[in-house]
């Protein structure tokens, strides 16, 4: 298989769909009702949105769920990884930086709703 093949990778599609789910205004969907409305490039691509949302909310782009915690315990480590999952103050500082430096605003992320505007 070579680059450019039209065959879709399902896990990539799921990640893309996850990005769309955290987007308040899906431009492709809106275009059906407002065909003359000009579409624009959103501040964050759909494929990256789920990772970014996790980064804002837990301070790590990677998922850490029960399965990961179980693996960690089996390996003789603390269940919770030594990341922002346990360092809540560090996460608060990160959120403050994201908020007050204007990054959240420019990305159009509404932290209360957990959604990107576009």
């Amino acid at each position: 298989m070579v680059s450019g093949d039209s065959e879709k990778i399902k896990s990539w599609e799921r990640l893309f769909e996850a990005g769309l789910k955290v987007t308040a205004h899906n431009q492709a969907e809106d275009a059906k009702y407002y065909p003359l409305r000009k579409q624009f490039r959103p501040p964050a691509p759909n494929i990256a949105k789920a990772s970014l949302k996790r980064d804002f909310e837990v301070g790590l782009v990677y998922y850490v769920g029960d399965d990961v915690e179980q693996d960690r315990a089996l390996c003789g480590l603390d269940k919770k990884p030594p990341t922002a999952h346990v360092f809540k103050e560090a996460l608060e500082r990160k959120r403050k930086i994201l908020e007050e430096s204007g990054i959240m605003k420019e990305l159009g992320f509404d932290k209360k709703k957990g959604l990107f505007k576009y």
């Binding site: 990256a48 990772s51 980064d55 990677y62 030594p82 990341t83 922002a84 360092f87 500082r93």
Partner: peptide, 15 residues
């Protein structure tokens, strides 16, 4: 008190 590095492949292309 560490946070994600942050992943350069995601953040650097954004800004």
């Amino acid at each position: 008190e560490t946070v994600c590095c942050v992943r350069p492949g995601v953040w650097k292309p954004l800004n």
